[in-house]
Design a binder for these strands. Structure first.
Length: 425
RNA sequence: GGAGAGGUGGCUGAGUGGUUGAAAGCGGCUCCCUGCUAAGGAGUUACAGGCGGCAACGCUUGUCGAGGGUUCGAAUCCCUCCCUCUCCGCCA
């Protein structure tokens, strides 16, 4: 959420920054609401101060021996009642304005960082570096072909169990998925991340706190009878780990690595990635999440990205890093690095991690602050996939394919999986 | 699902109508003392909004789970809701 003081005092700054995202928003209405609200607040609190004074006066007089039913006290009561009525009128108006203001503010995306490259859509993203040598060959299979051939999952039966876009991993496939989760968590915890396994059902406040609501309700699965949703990413529960908290400055940065299944409706992606592990309603992800002092988010962003890259490097998977342009930035992000892994079978780079710095955007929505001496201030938050597990498996399958049809796994993974290569069972 | 108890500041925990944003303790911060030192003393310390000030800070409003109500005045009384804990039942 954007600071409402900015809306009041410098709405043109917001408009200008949101324009970089490709959104032209007229904020004069919102500014008016914000200013009216503040005006009412001023009048109301002055009145309330009068009312409080009368209340005290009555108490003092009665204690001093005045007749509680005498004229003097009765006059004060009358005055108190009059004030009360006026306050009620102001209050009602003020509340209406406040909730309007809040609703609209919650629907505004974060302002892009000044460092974020300007651009319209994904074509304007800036490649900042590459790692590894992409395997480019004719005749390589795509991961879903390999998975089918090696019997790693069952998609048809998954429709019976659930729907399309669900997958049931089996045998070596299930084993590999599990190994990858462990591998990633071990790698991150060895660098000081605290491991987290959060609830995957989250309430509305949690989804609002990290920015998925109110705008993206149609992307999440909801439990109709409860105030609960299936989490689209561990970023949601981990943000709310510290919702409404003041974190002592000496505890920052807090760095978490959370495994969770993730659930997304993928509304509006009908024809795309219908086969395999790329786009599913349910997938596994290991998420990295930082709460940092506001001065440190810039360096933290570099570090969290490096920590995500470390997984790809350990698995020997070539990738490139994109600095997302303003037009491609997610709702809560200020700046984002996407990691795209090379898929030799598909012959393309594919997003496997998204590392974002959100500034105080989520912290303000979630009331997460830190305190240094007397000063209370909002923390900054960062998140990054470390990594999307299904897509990692896809990359491993395509990268490790051998001429005999087996799949060679990277060495560091072997102790986790229990075998060196996947082959027909 | 049944019965009961309870939700108060960063934490523990007092407080049942009057100047209480709230005792005490812990923790934090500042300063002091120091030959009895894994110590002692003094002070300070909630959050959010608004106004004033370059600032230190001052003034003011709201907040004792949430929302309503009674009252000149509510942490305290009434109503509704939410949540937590304990016991019983059921169950991974």
């Amino acid at each position: 959420m954007i600071d409402q003081r900015l809306v009041r005092d410098n709405p043109e700054v917001i408009a200008q920054q949101l324009k970089r995202r490709g959104k032209s928003i007229d904020l004069t209405g919102l500014q008016l609401i914000a200013r009216q609200q503040r005006g009412l607040e001023e009048e109301r609190s002055t009145l309330q101060a009068d009312g409080n004074r009368i209340g005290k006066e009555v108490g003092v007089k009665i204690k001093a021996g005045a007749d509680p039913k005498g004229d003097e006290v009765a006059a004060l009561r009358l005055h108190g009642n009059a004030i009360k009525q006026k306050v009620a009128v102001f209050e009602e108006e003020e509340k209406a304005l406040s909730s309007q203001l809040r609703d609209q503010l919650l629907s505004l995306p974060n302002l892009p960082s000044p460092l974020c490259p300007d651009g319209k859509d994904e074509h304007d993203n800036v490649e900042v570096r590459r790692w590894g040598t992409p395997r480019i060959e004719e005749g390589l299979e795509e991961h879903w072909q390999i998975a089918q051939r090696l019997n790693l999952f069952d998609t048809e039966r998954s429709v019976r169990i659930a729907q399309s876009r669900f997958v049931t991993l089996m045998g070596q496939g299930a084993r590999l998925e599990r190994a990858l989760i462990n591998f990633m968590l071990d790698l991150h915890t060895s660098k000081g991340y605290r491991e987290v396994m959060p609830p995957v059902l989250v309430n509305t406040a949690s989804l609002t706190g990290s920015g998925q609501l109110p705008k993206f309700a149609e992307e999440s699965f909801r439990c109709a009878d409860d105030d609960l949703w299936l989490t689209p990413t561990a970023e949601v529960p981990v943000t709310s780990l510290h919702r409404d908290e003041i974190i002592p400055a000496d505890q920052l940065p807090l760095r978490y690595s959370a495994y969770s299944p993730c659930f997304r409706r993928e509304a509006g992606s009908y024809g795309r990635d219908t086969r395999g592990l790329i786009r599913l309603h349910q997938f596994n992800k290991v998420e990295l999440y930082w709460f940092v002092h506001p001065d440190q988010s810039e360096e933290a962003h570099q570090q969290i990205t490096a920590d995500a890259e470390a997984v790809l490097q350990a698995l020997d998977l070539p990738y490139r890093v994109l600095d997302l342009c303003t037009g491609d930035l997610g709702f809560s992000a200020q700046r984002t690095y996407d990691l795209e892994v090379w898929l030799p079978g598909a012959g393309a780079f594919r997003e496997i991690s998204s590392c974002s710095v959100c500034g105080d955007f989520q912290a303000r929505r979630s009331a997460i602050r830190t305190k240094n001496g007397k000063q209370t201030q909002l923390v900054h938050t960062l998140n990054g996939s470390g990594l999307a597990v299904g897509r990692t498996m896809a990359a491993l399958l395509e990268t490790g394919q051998q001429s005999d049809g087996s799949i060679l796994l990277p060495k560091p993974l072997v102790p986790y999986v229990g075998f060196e290569r996947l082959q027909p069972e």
